[in-house]
Design a protein around this nucleic acid. Structure first.
Lengths: 147, 147
DNA sequence: CAGCGTGGTTGCAAAGTGCTACCGCGTTAC
DNA sequence: GTAACGCGGTAGCACTTTGCAACCACGCTG
């Protein structure tokens, strides 16, 4: 996590999420949660990170309302980490990142995990930025207006 | 940057991008580049981060093909950092993150920067994950198929 | 009650971050 | 012509974070 002293209260809505997500592990934890993982041990095993780090990340995500700690869904006497609505709202972020990774970090024939629409079994469409009338927008078609 | 020893060659396309972007500052640099910033000093002044850190981040981004270092566009004898095609492809990622920040990190009346479609002057639409036939998909409507 | 699985916390070495000072280069000021 | 200045860095060093390993608490199981 960077320090970002003077930008803590930045009016730019990109900066604040990065205080929560701006860590290499955090979005991987969220991705695993989208894949159905719920328990501390599942995350730890799947990601292979140290338990103290995972503990700190999960605590931070709970404190920021991305996960909530609910008392067991199956019979087990433990707790599980579930995505909140706010956490599920990260789905386009993770998916856009995934597609960027697919396009630029894999060679053509390299095996990769694919994200598919469960109903159709077909890959999901590319995530695009669109105008309110549906036109696809690139970086140069937009501008940021300050308050 | 996390270590991610055994996941360096992960088949999950979310993990690899995070080796490049998984730092709190990196996406802010990219965001600033979308806003038109090109020069070392512009980034440094706008973000307020130490020059050695910025230097390291930019070098990493150049090494990973997100920026390219081109020899001056105006008359100045310096170089500038320009987004490559790969870098511009991060637009949906940054925009999705921005919208998440807008929705969950600002109270209703708090002043915030807004991203608008230059042609219409209207805010851009919400970034959504869609199936190939256009249906909007949530996290539970999709699954990851391993290779 | 001995052992085991789960979900952590604690210590400590190593790595990364960030502040400050300095450096090299080209341009301007005098 | 040389002194000062802006730009784009690098170097030194204190401080923080990361991550491995060891330990701990709790509930269940045999």
């Amino acid at each position: 996590m960077p320090k970002r002293t003077s930008h803590e209260e930045s009016a730019c809505p990109v900066a604040r999420p990065l205080d929560v997500l701006g860590d290499g592990w955090t979005l991987l934890i969220v991705r695993d949660a989208f894949d159905g993982l719920r328990r501390f041990g599942q995350f730890q095993k799947n990601l292979g990170l140290a338990k103290n780090i995972l503990s700190a990340r999960l605590a931070n995500l709970v404190a920021n309302g991305v996960f909530e700690l609910t008392p067991a869904a199956d019979g087990s006497p433990y707790q599980e980490y579930r995505l909140t609505e706010k956490g599920r709202a990260l789905f386009p972020v993770v998916t856009a990142l995934r597609q960027w990774g697919e396009q630029y970090f894999f060679t053509g024939d390299e095996p990769r995990a694919r994200l598919v629409d469960r109903a159709a079994g077909a890959p999901v469409a590319r995530v695009e930025v669109r105008a309110s009338d549906g036109r696809v927008l690139g970086p140069d078609d937009t501008e940021v207006l300050l308050p």
